[in-house]
Amino acid sequence: MGLMNMSNVVLKTEGLTKRYGDLVAVADLTLEIYRGEVFGFLGPNGAGKTTSINMMCGLLVPDTGTVTIDGVPIHAADDVLRARVGVCPQEIVLWERLTCLEQLQFMGEMYSLSAKEAHQRAEMLLEELDLVEKRDTQARKLSGGLQRRLNVAMALVHDPEIVILDEPEVGLDPQSRVKVREYIQSLARVKTVILTTHNMDEADRLADRVAIIDHGKLLELDTPTVLKKRVGEGDVVEIELETTVDPAIAGQVEAAVAHMVDQVHMDHETSTLTVRALNAVGALASILDALEKSGVQAGEVRVRENTLEDVFIQLTGRRLRQ
């Protein structure tokens, strides 16, 4: 991918460690995040995602290690550099008695935009996140979904280069989820987006690369595609055969396929060949070819691809919501 070269690194963490008493919240976290990528940050509750993010944006000082933006340590950075980051926290953080427009305009001015610029940015974001009708409504009177959309908008009012979205989809109604997801997609390539999420599907669809952390440690970091091919129990492909297969031929078929995949099983009762392997989907053409060479006609093919959730379970031993 074109984004991924050393000169394109916008945010870098090196040996980032944070302890709270005996608890190591983040341990030796080293990451490079590229300009314009959507970077997924996955981990179960308490894995250290939010602590990492707080260190990345300068809200927390690491015990050891550094965070740099374009090579400048965040804690040595002036407010101009820090303002290149926009953070949407996991919790809804709004002034309940300010209207949507007032909140956005206020934060714009806190980031040194002129009143006019802040107003224009606020109006634009209200438009983009479908909040125009609520521009003069106080935050406390908005639904949870609308509050979350406004929460996202608040991170973007100063047009930051790096946007950190901490669980932006939590508690969203379907309509708002679609809206926020579309909006994040629209940010891709225009901005660097660091996204923590519980939603594997969201990470898979949106993220260029995914880091999986648990107990404060980085377990894996790669593109979702590579991770799915590398980690987990693999794809499951079920091929229904057209006719009942002679056991001898079945044995030949299993042998022919076995060297391509991790597991192969022929169910004689249902005449179904089931294979499981990382990237079994990629090997599907070769498997079908082997069947044909054995004189076996393949019928319906059912595929369950290895998912990011499978990768996650394999790495952490638990589901993300646990």
């Binding site: 820090r82 926290p89 934060m107």
Partner: peptide, 14 residues
């Protein structure tokens, strides 16, 4: 408590 203090701290306001 509401986190808005952190929001302001993250901005360019001192």
């Amino acid at each position: 408590l509401s986190g808005t203090l952190q929001r302001v701290r993250l901005s360019r306001a001192s």
